[in-house]
Computed example of a mutant assay.
Amino acid sequence: MNKITSLFNIKYPIVQGGMIWNSGYKLASAVSNAGGLGLIGAGSMYPDVLRTHIQKCKKATDKPFGVNVPMLYPNIEEIMQIIVEEGVKIVFTSAGNPKTWTSFLKEKGITVVHVVSSSKFALKAQEAGVDAVVAEGFEAGGHNGREETTTLTLIPMVREQISIPLIAAGGIATGRGMLAAMVLGADGVQVGSRFAASTESSSHSNFKQTIVALEEGGTHLTLKELAPVRLIKNKFYHDVQELYATCPTTDELKALLGRARAKRGMFEGDLEEGELEIGQIAGLIHDIKPVENIVKDMIAEFEAATNEVASLL
């Protein structure tokens, strides 16, 4: 029995990343209905909006789903209270200390998973009492670790250090990628970019089309002084690089970033001035299709690749 399917009571060990401006209830419920674990991305939602999405998700699926909570955002106490009040059973925390909320959530009977980018933080999450960790490699889109450790090396390193279930993330969009991560020691995978380019993703169609058009080398991890983020190389990205040439202060970087730039890019579709976050694997994503098809294709490819590997021996 697979540890991740057992932990979440799902059919396939596939978790959908809780991406800001992409992961509304439509995406989360579609992934859950397809046999994976859908996550609502609380990072881009005011508390009342999050409550509405949780309520709509409960109506759209009778399968398990969860909420992803980046702990660097404001209103965290209110968000956690809503999660408890609405009876959410699974919470993924990220961008913060797992000790802060894990015991509170566990006392309420909630399964807790923490996202990390290193073995050191994976151990800290295990010590904090989480049920599983997501180890996310440098290839991932959105906010990322400073270490620049790739998924290929991160997963076996984390596996060596922890005993709890391990979910691999960063650069996984195919069944072959899923198999590779599991051979390296992961019990399941978290998939972000591939689901961002789905029919049910809440992001703007301009952003989805940009993902599909992206080629190898079209993204870069930057803004490490604020919070490292992998961006598509658009006008805003080039403005950031021009500012770096002047050896800017953190305040100058913050001033350029401004407010709501990710919303402007991914949700409102401003491809020039918006912050467009996606993983390196976008170079392998060539179409926008329904979640059901994405999951079916991943599982079919995973099974075919498993048979291919067996024939190599």
Rank of each mutant, 00 (worst) to 15 (best):
V69T: 07
T93Y: 06
D239I: 00
V130H: 06
V134M: 11
E252K: 15
A282W: 01
N97M: 09
E127P: 02
L105A: 03
S201C: 06
G142A: 10
G36A: 01
R159G: 08
G43L: 02
E268T: 10
G96A: 10
V88W: 12
G269R: 02
G185A: 13
V212D: 10
G38C: 02
M157V: 04
L166A: 06
V115P: 00
K89C: 08
T151K: 03
S23A: 15
A128G: 04
H204E: 04
G145K: 07
F138C: 03
A122H: 09
S202W: 08
A30T: 05
S201W: 00
S23Y: 08
K106Q: 11
G274A: 11
R264K: 15
Y25A: 09
L284F: 12
H286E: 15
L312P: 00
E303L: 12
Q280F: 05
A213V: 03
G274R: 14
A196K: 11
I110H: 14
E268A: 11
F236C: 13
L223Q: 05
K106L: 08
I281N: 05
F207C: 11
I82W: 02
L37D: 03
L184A: 10
T246S: 14
R264M: 15
V158A: 03
L256G: 11
S311D: 06
N206I: 03
A169F: 05
